[in-house]
Write a protein that binds this DNA or RNA. Structure first.
Lengths: 232, 232
DNA sequence: GCAGTCGCTTGACATTTATCAATCCATTTG
DNA sequence: CAAATGGATTGATAAATGTCAAGCGACTGC
């Protein structure tokens, strides 16, 4: 692990406040590996032996049942994933695969649990992180249960726009087939949904989105902080 | 609060291991109140000033957007709800209403956060509880995204059957309109879904369910521990 | 450069789910 | 007891969403 990677990890909310000694201990036990694209890092159901950190690249969390599968989330650098399985010492509930060439750090779950007991700042950070994750999933659940696919897409675009700086033009940050899966629809339907947003001034060219009329699309999407804000 | 209620709360996973002194301090600051049925205890968006504990009765957690609403979960005695808002010191993401006459304890969120810092056993219990909650929502999300409404109902019935002891006959534990909302469908569709399960040996009389052919319904439902087991 | 691959789009169609209206049925209430 | 209420059911219909098949277009690799 390079010094700069080490510092990036140290600056994550999860690790920022803990004692140097404990952070060093965690990092000493960590493995860092480079993976090519499309490698399955984790298979759901396996024991959650490692806390994962994406240092670079990106990772898709997905799940399968009865021949179907769905993307649950995308993890981008620098952040951790599957903290809950680590804490509960339970099986992974989601599988994970690299979307591109990625660098991943693996910290043994045992170490995380041991240092949780020894470092109260780390304990507090873990609690905050878990609460944040929980609330994110609750929001996703509300999005799914309360909105149609067209509304989900519209609100996704507004979130993405804000994330990209708020300009009228921005890029989708992943391929459409996976966006469709994240939004809980088929790729065919996503195509049609983009067309369905044209009357509200949304135009799409490849991965480039243009919001032609901010008021129109917002009036349609009705974004709500209790569903769409990252922070709350 | 009666002695027996006090003991019931003490025995919750969240409070079982903490120091007596700290538990007593939490309880000293708590309010206990009786509410009639159909009272809105919490409105989403308000600051999460209290950790709630259902002592008796039951509470529906729900959310609304753009004129629609959906039940997210039902809380039954004895357990806590909206721990995450308490921890994050953020707004409630869900509203809560009593389903029947209920007795509720309210613990100021500040107290919870203060004692979290002072009692490492309590801190550990909170982390475990949050991880559990997170994983439950992930499972609910998989249920919603990977299954049709008929499949969700079939798996719900199997879970409920197991929860009721595993016999061929058992009772639904809440009214159908709300079951429909929890499962993400309309009451009309739930009615039809019950009919749709008849070919698999499921019969319904009021709130009483009979599983006529265990193998048949399981073959259709394909329950999966990573979606349907409470514990994992 | 060109064949092959893969993702995206489109159209036709099927399935699933929601909506609306009417009715049934059990429970409550006067 | 009768009327009223509210949930449950049913049927007819509409809307949303998925499936299948075909074609387009960009990128990849020989």
């Amino acid at each position: 692990m390079t010094d700069s990677e080490y510092r990036d990890i140290r600056q994550l909310n999860l690790f920022a406040q803990m004692a140097d000694e404990h952070f060093t201990a965690l990092m000493r036990g960590a493995y860092v590996q480079n993976f090519p694209a499309q490698i399955e890092l984790i298979t759901e159901g396996e024991p959650g032996d490692f806390l994962h950190i994406v240092i670079s690249g990106s990772v898709d969390l997905f799940s399968a049942w009865n021949g179907r599968d769905t993307s649950m989330a995308t993890v981008r650098p620098v952040s951790t994933f599957i903290l809950a399985a680590t804490i509960k010492d339970g099986p992974y509930l989601m599988s994970a695969r690299t979307l591109e060439k990625s660098r991943i750090a693996l910290i043994p779950s045992q170490d995380v649990r041991a240092i949780f007991d020894a470092d109260s700042d780390f304990a507090r950070a873990i609690v905050t992180e878990l609460a944040q994750c929980y609330r994110s999933v609750i929001k996703a659940q509300k999005d799914l249960k309360l909105r149609t696919s067209l509304e989900r897409l519209a609100n996704y675009l507004l979130r993405q726009q804000r994330h990209a700086g708020g300009g009228t033009e921005f890029e989708l940050d992943f391929e459409k087939r996976r966006l469709a899966s994240v939004l809980g629809m088929t790729p065919e339907n996503l195509s049609r949904a983009f067309k369905g947003l044209q009357p509200y001034g949304v135009t799409v060219t490849g991965t480039r989105i243009t919001i032609g009329n901010q008021a129109d699309i917002e009036h349609f999407a009705k974004p709500n902080p209790l569903i769409d804000d990252f922070s709350t």
